[in-house]
């Protein structure tokens, strides 16, 4: 059976601070290379949202000003989102998009901007920004030789929650620089501070998200192998530079 995936990219005109369309490009290219038909649905501010029409949702990062606009817009859809998340809707939320999933995030001024409160998570403002290359050990049952995820982080917020993280920090800061946790995995949600963008150098995570979306849609989650030599070379070159492994 021909498989079709609908990738919903939320507010690309506002949330594009860390090249989030790079993640979209990786997901869509890797799906297409497996013969899956891909429909990319960019949603602009003011458009009516229908999460029944989504198999995977991408929420990127923007400036504080832009994130506040997005938060307000999405608040009207909170119930829809909660129901969809209960059914297992895969969501990839990066940086600002990740913070937006929680109860609130605090600006450097001390002002608390309400989030969507989809999960019990809070983000407080830190003194300094946490910036640099990061490597984590992915918390997963997925098959494969590589267990690390690599990328770049740049955030002032310190995020706290009690869910399973995306992974354990090997080098870098992660959610808050203290508890060794990076990101969140809850139902279909993958939230993370890692960009660079996240997926090009982490093809195993990209395929994991595609499989989640296929299963969510009721398809077989079989994915054939791709030539990922360049991807792994780039992945390992970051690990080498960070003197890991």
């Amino acid at each position: 059976m021909a498989r079709t995936l609908r990738l919903v990219h939320l507010f690309p005109e506002l949330l594009n601070l860390y090249a989030d369309q790079g993640n979209l490009s990786v997901l869509s290219t890797r799906a297409k290379q497996r013969g899956i038909e891909v429909k990319i649905l960019p949603v602009k501010l003011g458009t009516k949202l229908d999460f029944d029409q989504a198999d995977l949702v991408l929420l990127g990062g923007g400036s504080d000003r832009e994130q506040a606009i997005v938060g307000k817009e999405l608040l009207a859809y909170r119930q829809d989102l909660l129901s969809a998340i209960d059914l297992g809707l895969p969501i990839l939320a990066v940086c600002g998009g990740y913070q937006l999933l929680g109860e609130f995030y605090e600006l450097p001024s001390g002002e608390k901007v309400p989030g969507l409160h989809l999960i019990d998570m809070t983000t407080h403002a830190g003194k300094n920004r946490l910036i640099g290359n990061i490597a984590i050990e992915w918390n997963t049952n997925a098959q494969g030789a590589v267990r690390t995820l690599v990328g770049f982080e740049n955030h002032g917020g310190r995020t706290m929650h009690d869910y399973p993280p995306l992974g354990k920090v090997v080098k870098g800061f992660g959610n808050n620089g203290t508890d060794q946790k990076e990101g969140v995995q809850y139902k279909g949600i993958v939230g993370t501070y890692i960009h660079g963008p996240l997926l090009p150098k982490n093809p195993h995570l990209a395929d994991h998200l595609i499989r989640n979306a296929l299963r969510y849609r009721g398809y077989s989650d079989d994915l054939g192998d791709l030539d990922d030599r360049l991807e792994w070379e780039a992945h390992h070159s970051i690990l080498n530079r960070m003197q890991i492994g």
Binding site: S25, V26, T29, G196, P200, L230, E231, A234, R241
Partner: peptide
């Protein structure tokens, strides 16, 4: 450059034939 591989991936996902990319 130190990030030549990142650029190579950028090109590959833009649709450049991988066999034409030299790092």
């Amino acid at each position: 450059g130190t990030r030549g591989l990142d650029m190579a991936l950028r090109l590959a996902y833009a649709g450049v034939d991988r066999s034409k990319i030299n790092v």
